[in-house]
Design a protein around this nucleic acid. Structure first.
Lengths: 208, 208
DNA sequence: AAAATAAATTGCGTATACGAAAATTATGTG
DNA sequence: CACATAATTTTCGTATACGCAATTTATTTT
């Protein structure tokens, strides 16, 4: 087990940081091999020494921004792909089915919902199906926020969406909305009936 | 004008490297200010010294991978957003609404569907709503494929999904599936009634 | 306007990134 | 198996990232 010696002030992040660096390195080696490149090939293509690339792949060093830029160029990928966002890879040639009532209902004061496909690794979208019990914005202490984008579809009932940067919008059954989920938002049922909705989140974290 | 002295072997990349670093720094400062954070706030949130953050924002240094990871966490963004990548950017603080019948119906022999939010730039998910007129796999010349992942939800009726790598699956109303869309697939209605479905695609291209 | 406070930048010592060359390991060929 | 070649890793010296404390600049308060 190789021991790296991070700066003293980073002690609390030591495990996290090392873990991230190793994952990055593994992804880098995978990308390189997928393209049938040797370290020397990539060194030529990127302008980074083969020795540095080898160390990066083994998580022995953390590349600087400049080197990361060069690497993305050398590999012909963008930065996002270089970081292989989403640790587990999505199973190729797979299809998963969510049966009615298959997933455990999660209950909060304001929502009752199922997290669909919670057992599917590496999926980029997070679908959720449920019922909005909140009928007033006052039911919420604060807005919900998480990085990414969100699609919400109203199956039945009437839904009002409050956001911190826009006028509230009300959707009827069959209607939908698409929003920046990093902006504070809450969903409330707008009629007598609890609205039934389907939500698909993209990005880290989830809505509810 | 501050002068940095890069390694001799990086001379040919000097301008490019500095340029990239300055852009990154500007984006970082923008992200931080958008969130109403001081350097000290972000230093606390990320575990990186304020002086380092200041230098990074002014392009005076290139952060290492470890620091970049901490930064993304501290800012609550993913790496892609940190680098400001992605062609057209999704409008921050936006919400778009798709009303019933708002979008033009697109008709093929096998499907009638609306491409929801077709006017929204930079969205990563492509939602579609429609009806499956095909009741037999024989209606299709070939499977449909496109890179990425796909979520399909059955609003009404019964849907059978044929894929090239799996046994067919049949979904009832309220059920859904999540699949690798690069794998050949077709959707067919399975009962007398045309199934009504909602599809959300992620990745380049779209299904139908 | 002066004083107080907040925010950003600079100075300096230590740790780590980095490249070139040498050494080691892995692979291919006769 | 021996040898040649390719690929990767290690060594070592130099440059740069990094954090803490001090200083400067910007903003707010009186």
């Amino acid at each position: 087990m190789i021991e790296s010696s991070p700066p003293p002030s980073a002690t609390s992040d030591e495990l996290t940081t090392d873990g991230g660096r190793n994952e990055f390195g593994e992804n880098l080696r995978k990308l390189r091999k997928d393209k049938k490149m040797t370290l020397a090939d990539l060194a030529t293509a990127s302008g980074i020494a083969a020795s540095t690339l080898s160390r990066a792949e083994r998580g022995l060093l953390g590349l600087t921004y400049d080197r990361l830029s060069q690497l993305a160029d050398g590999l012909g990928v963008d930065m996002a792909e270089l970081f292989g966002t989403g640790g587990a890879s999505f199973q190729k040639n797979s299809i998963s089915v969510a049966r009615l009532g298959e997933f455990e209902l999660q209950t909060t004061p304001n929502y009752t919902y199922e997290m669909l496909f919670s057992d599917v690794w590496g999926k980029a979208m997070t679908p959720m199906a449920g019922v909005v019990k909140a009928h007033s914005r006052l039911a919420f202490d604060d807005f919900i926020r998480h990085p990414g984008q969100e699609f919400v579809f109203v199956q039945s009932g009437q839904l009002t969406i409050y956001t911190e940067a826009n006028e509230p919008v009300t959707l009827e059954a069959g209607e939908s909305a698409y929003l920046d989920s990093s902006m504070g938002h809450v969903y409330t049922s707008a009629g007598d009936e609890d609205a039934r909705i389907l939500v698909v989140c993209l990005g880290r974290g989830d809505s509810a």
